[in-house]
Design a protein around this nucleic acid. Sequence first.
DNA 1: CAGTGAGCGAGCTTCCGCTTGACTT
Length: 545
Amino acid sequence: MLWTISHLLTGMKLFIVESPTKAKTIVRYLGRGWRVEATLGHIKDLPPDNLGVDMESLEPTFVWVRGKKKLFDRIRELAKKATFVCIGTDPDREGEAIAYFVREELKRLNIPIGRVVFYEITPDSIRQAVEAPGEVNTHLVKAQFARRVLDRLIGYRLSPYLCKATGKLGLSVGRVQSPALRLVVEREREIIAFKKREYYHIKAVFEKGSVEFSALWNYRFERVENAKPYLEKLRRALFEVSLFSEERKEKEPPKPFITSSLQSVANQRLKMKVEQVQKTAQKLYEQGYITYPRTDSHRMNQQKAQEFMDYIKKTYGSNYVGKLRSFPQKSTTQGAHECIRPTGLTTPPLKGGELALYELILHRTLASLASPALLLERRAVLNPLYEGKGREEMPFMAKGLELLFDGYLRIYPEELELSALPFLQEGEVLKPKKIVVEKRQTQPPPRYTEGALVKKLEELGIGRPSTYATIVKTLKERNYVVEEKGYLKPTEVAFEVVDFLKEKFPGVIDYSFTNQMEQGLDEVEKGSRDWQELVREFFLSFKVE
DNA sequence: CAGTGAGCGAGCTTCCGCTTGACTT
């Protein structure tokens, strides 16, 4: 009996991950003999109150993240009693850096330490990972140092410079926030410069087989009086169908959610602030209802995908089942996690915002595996005929869009502008029911909503899933933007900051700066470039006195 | 003797990205 207990104690193995939720799952899969502990993200970082980088050597000083010393003391005590330590932090640049610092803290204990990677949390993938422990990838770690130090230098050297130059306190500059601010400011400038113009179109309304449809003469009259003489003539004319075409088009279902699309769609459809979306998704994740909510990968577990497709077949019929798809990954994708999807198909007992968000995720996930919608697109050109004068070159265009089969739209509705246009014969002559003048206005581009900004940033490769919501928050905290009826409006100081940066440090508000940095980091990750040389090249381009 | 300027230190502020409770308003 005693022997058994002491064997269990001495036989304890320790598995270290980032997220406590993951830890709970993994301990179930590993079972007896394993302890699984979470670091809650980074444990070491540059000090918050000073630069923490030697400007000569570019050597960084990493210190304990607040609260993590105590947390890690506990992990270290467990490690002392362990026979083996497995570091299973996320398989990406940041996760590798966490693994590095964990190993640095534990290596003097002289206990075997292995770095393991896995891309999904299933019993098989965890077991396989544990059976093939490797080393910490120092190239990835160096790339993280480069990223971190470059962001620090930009933030902590340029921000004070900006404050001094403008005589204003509390301003900030950053590789991510400054391009984001520029987007909002430049959109506002377009809106300010926008001149509203009114114009007039002539529209002909027809009816065939009790279907009413209209055709537009694509000529813009600046004043309604100019359209009047044509109206008189057209009201007496017949119209000949000079062209008719129809085409069936498939509308592909959307990809499953990743952080950016979840935030932008939930912001748009559920009217939730992106910060609220992220908090709610985190709760759903912690309760085990959805997968990890901070991801940039559309990848879906094949077995789960099959399960969802079986459900579509059972619930909607086999013609609603799509095909298993795989999506090309963007070069910035880090691939540590799957897409955001429900973990199963049992209905969880949720209400309010959590329920709404869960259902949105469920429907989007199912839709991504459903069949395309089938649309019928019809186009016609109608030309007026005049008595004695024959045909006049005034092409009136008519468009029709009809839904032949709803497909994924049945599960995940989207707004479609459907319009009726009956089948027409070329050469057919129609008498218009009425001819009318329509007043139109040119529209200024809209301000960014929180969701639209997140979507744009993701497209530009700026920011990461864990920070999209924070970027919006920072711009508000700095009083760079204010919210107006759900839209982001830049303040006076925002214009000033962007103009200053454009003049003094154009590189930092260049939308492709992050991409260029990522290319450099890629070389560091491959081991073909020195990380400090990379930081030097990028930061020296700013020339801060 | 009063005003000025240089130099110094203290205190405050600033970045992005990884992860959740433990705090305070």
